[in-house]
């Protein structure tokens, strides 16, 4: 193997510092969430305890965070399913040129780059003027989709840019209908990428703040609840909560990555028997 140039070691050190910069603060509050009961928001540690994690389970100490967690979980799953289904459908649509597809594409990009507070404000105003109550499962759900769908769509573009069309042609040549081609050829081929879309859909919703702010109504999602805590909670309990939600996010990401990995392995094993015959 070729000898590593000196620049490799410099860049490797830079990369290590970058990773430290990314994860250092998270690890710090991870450690501080185990503060003793007398401990404060910064070092030194005054003992080690699970005191602040216990506090999380006592309603009066932290408000309704478990209700908020349940709502965020349900909303995340709803947004995830909608993001996958709508992105795939739109991805299929954009494979052909249809009247107005250019406009629709730029609207989707606008959805991505628009300052989030405009979505919050505008959706809030509409519901208000129509006399409807904002609720996380209606206005909150729609507002979050304006953030997750463009990501899903961009991933679908990347997927279909690399899609080998000869598979479809082969299916059609053998008499498959359009629907059969999609159901039995296209969808199975793009399935692993859909795990990626699902991961974006769930996590972006689960952590969404700005577009949900004025559209969630009287029942907060978890990020809104956490933000509320930052203004009136001044104890490590907020670190304990941060540590738990981050661990939960890591677990979710782990599950998705594992699923993608398993799927890729199964495909590699079963995909082709070329060269294995006589």
């Amino acid at each position: 193997m070729e000898k590593r140039p000196f620049s490799f070691y410099l860049l490797a050190a830079f990369f290590a510092l970058f990773v430290l910069f990314l994860y250092g603060p998270t690890i710090t509050i991870g450690i501080l969430s185990f503060q003793g009961p007398q401990g404060g928001l910064t070092f030194p540690m005054r003992g080690v305890s699970l005191h602040w994690f216990r506090d999380l389970f006592e309603e009066q100490a932290v408000g309704d965070i478990w209700g908020a967690f349940r709502r965020s979980l349900v909303l995340g799953l709803l947004v995830m399913v909608a993001t996958v289904v709508f992105s795939v459908m739109a991805g299929l649509a954009f494979r052909k040129r249809f009247l107005g597809s250019g406009v629709l594409f730029y609207v989707a990009i606008t959805s991505l780059v628009i300052p989030s507070i405009l979505i919050s404000l505008g959706v809030g105003l509409i519901f208000n003027q129509l006399g409807l109550k904002v609720h996380w499962a209606t206005s909150g759900f729609g507002s979050q989709l304006t953030w997750t769908l463009p990501f899903g769509l961009l991933i679908m573009f990347a997927v279909f840019n690399r899609f080998d069309k000869s598979f479809e042609e082969a299916a059609r040549d053998q008499g498959a209908t359009a629907w059969q081609t999609i159901r039995h050829v296209v969808l199975p081929i793009i399935a692993p990428s859909l795990i990626g879309v699902a991961l974006f859909g769930f996590t972006l919703s689960y952590d969404e703040f700005a577009r949900t702010l004025l559209t969630a109504g009287s029942y907060n999602t978890l990020p809104l609840e956490v933000f509320g805590m930052t203004t009136n909670v001044t104890s490590p309990v907020i670190y304990a909560l941060g540590t738990l939600t981050t661990l939960f996010s890591f677990a979710i990401i782990g599950v998705f990555l594992l699923a993608a990995w398993v799927m890729a392995r199964r495909r590699a094993r079963r995909g082709s028997d070329a060269g294995k015959g006589v």
């Binding site: 603060p25 998270t26 509050i29 991961l199 974006f200 996590t203 972006l204 689960y206 952590d207 703040f209 990020p223 956490v226 933000f227 930052t230 907020i238 670190y239 941060g242 939600t245 981050t246 996010s249 890591f250 979710i252 990401i253």
Partner: peptide, 9 residues
């Protein structure tokens, strides 16, 4: 894929 608010805190 983790919370921005927690990362700020």
């Amino acid at each position: 894929w983790t919370s921005n608010i927690i990362r700020m805190i």
